[in-house]
Design a binder for these strands. Structure first.
Lengths: 345, 345
DNA sequence: TTGAAAGCGCTAACAC
DNA sequence: GTGTTAGCGCTTTCAA
């Protein structure tokens, strides 16, 4: 096995094997038909020269780069890195690599990435769009989402007015069930902390409202507070605000995985304990949650990732498919952070 | 702005602008010299046609794909995703994209990725090698690390016998200081939990030993226990083992970021509190650590990532540079988990 | 089953 | 400052 000649090409292999480069192409690309004899000779030459095909050249000719891009807020977020982990695993199985693009939850960066992705002839895109409810995608960028001619699947969040495949958790339903659970324990004044701008969070709030209404509890809008995504320790500040302005609160319901740790800091500061002083329920499981015995709605992120990749490959095989929404189940892990409110006992 | 014609090429732009495609190349690639007039015409045509250059074709011709690959155990690990975050940010600034490759701490996967990376003509590689101390890289794969002809920088861990650029924390020194700190509080029997197989962890253990020896404390090898990387809740099991077999322990020193949460579960189970029942010191800061007031050695992961990218670009510019090791400072955040041992008071 | 030739979209070399 | 030409390494006709 000779190695290290930077550029062993298909011609070298063809020469050594005594066949044409077309035949070599057939063997290594595994298409067309080749006699067993030729195949053998080619395989030997490949091994001898330690030949690896040039993916770039293949891509230029075949219009497939065997690459998918994942565009999301930040790989540091636990939802996102679990998602990427699952996506990369699935992609590798199919011989695809994954390009990672952080938008820092910034629309300009997202657009920059999408343009770049087009440049790179990526075969497919999985996107958690930055888009926040109410904002409108500037008209001149719509084509990046709609007519990119690259298969694209949204994960977690959608963009209003853009019909794309979407994979997300059953946010509304899970939130409804969780709220029902709190109500069943006797809670009526449940504070909510979440980043309201995202469609996902809005769905969760809808579920929360529906549960309250169904139980005949008046919905008090001031109990739902909005956490700006980027702010550090915003959860702590908002928890403080809620607890001060609403002494009637008996439970806190946290809708973002990034917020819960921060909320706990405030509870600690105030020497409040769950479930005795306050019940606490949150989204997304973390080391924290087990240690603090926090009742949690778990998203099956890996399944979301797998489904997104599966759908993406379907779209890559047939670009005429109509957009579909897939909603993945969630699970509520009941630990010890929720109990009957004191006043109720 | 016309959009969506899948394949607007440099020829189309040249035709519309009334110049040769070489001139268009000069404008969009920003090399050579072009008259202001031509530049204007080209720019207009580019906008008019919504032209984006084909990175694949550029790559084939210019032998640069504007891509770097990051190969590491798992993006789910917090050290790893902070690193990737920093790397991607730096790479983007320079117009490079990042391919993410998880090895699942498995040598075969790592080798598979490196071969694939060669196929893809990636411009540079940042690698946290799977390699564990004592194991030897099979001879036939050495060339993947040594003669790949692609600039490569190791992060965090090195491979014995392979001279590569390496960026890592000052593991030995930081560990020495941390142990000194525990000793200064009066601790003599300090249990250590870490995944011994990695060079990084071995350096930390060296620092621990040096501090003990310098203070005239006998090093008891059975106080250092080895956590297998992959096992779930291994930290908990090992903490239990240490506490049972060594009632003389007054402090626990945890060397891996993944282990600490697991160790805390065991302390909780045994109703042991820090620092009253036991002192606790750990590597890598986490939400957990602030909430539990755990004294922590913080690695500047983002700086490590930035340095690795910087070095990689130096190597890409000049492949003759000699391998260097960069050791990045750490910081010890003193919280409340360490105090004088009870027996000492 | 196989080979020759064309060409994917671009950049580099050279001429003017 | 600009255009012409060749060709990166491969796949895809097409013809044999």
């Amino acid at each position: 096995m000779e190695s290290n000649n930077q550029t062993v090409t298909i011609d070298d292999v063809a020469k050594l094997a005594g066949v044409s480069k077309a035949t070599v192409g057939r063997v290594i690309g595994n298409y067309g038909s080749v006699s067993e004899k030729s195949r053998q000779k080619v395989m030997e030459a490949v091994k001898e020269l330690d030949y690896v095909p040039n993916t770039i050249a293949q891509g230029l000719r075949s219009h497939s780069t065997k690459t998918i891009a994942v565009v999301l807020g930040s790989i540091k977020n636990s939802y996102c890195n679990e998602l990427v982990y699952a996506i990369e695993k699935e992609a590798m199985k199919r011989g695809y690599n994954v390009l990672i693009c952080n938008t820092h939850e910034n629309l300009d960066k997202e657009i920059q990435h999408l343009r770049n992705i087009r440049s790179r002839q990526v075969d497919g895109v999985i996107l958690i769009p930055v888009y926040t409810v109410g904002k409108v995608i500037p008209e001149k960028y719509r084509h990046l989402y709609e007519n990119l001619n690259i298969p694209m699947v949204f994960v977690d969040r959608n963009i209003m007015g853009i019909e794309k495949d979407l994979v997300q958790s059953k946010n509304e339903e899970a939130s409804y069930e969780a709220t029902k659970y709190l109500i069943s324990l006797g809670h009526k004044n449940i504070g909510v902390i979440g980043t309201v701008a995202y469609s996902t969070v809005q769905d969760r709030i809808k579920g929360y409202r529906r549960a309250l209404q169904e139980s005949g509890i008046a919905v008090n809008a001031s109990l739902v507070v909005d956490a700006e995504y980027s702010e550090k320790h915003v959860g702590q500040k908002l928890a403080a605000k809620l607890l001060e302005e609403h002494p009637e609160l008996t439970a806190l319901y946290v809708l973002n995985n990034t917020l819960c740790g921060s909320v706990l800091l405030e509870l600690k500061k105030r020497n409040l304990h769950t479930p005795d002083d306050l019940s606490l329920l949150t989204w997304d499981d973390d080391d924290l949650n087990e240690l603090f015995d926090i009742t949690t709605i778990v998203q099956y992120v890996e399944e979301i990732g797998r489904s997104a990749v599966k759908r993406l490959f379907e779209l890559m095989a047939d670009s005429q498919l109509k957009a579909e929404v897939q909603r993945i189940d969630t699970e509520m892990i009941i630990r010890k952070s929720c109990a009957e409110p004191k006043a109720f006992q």
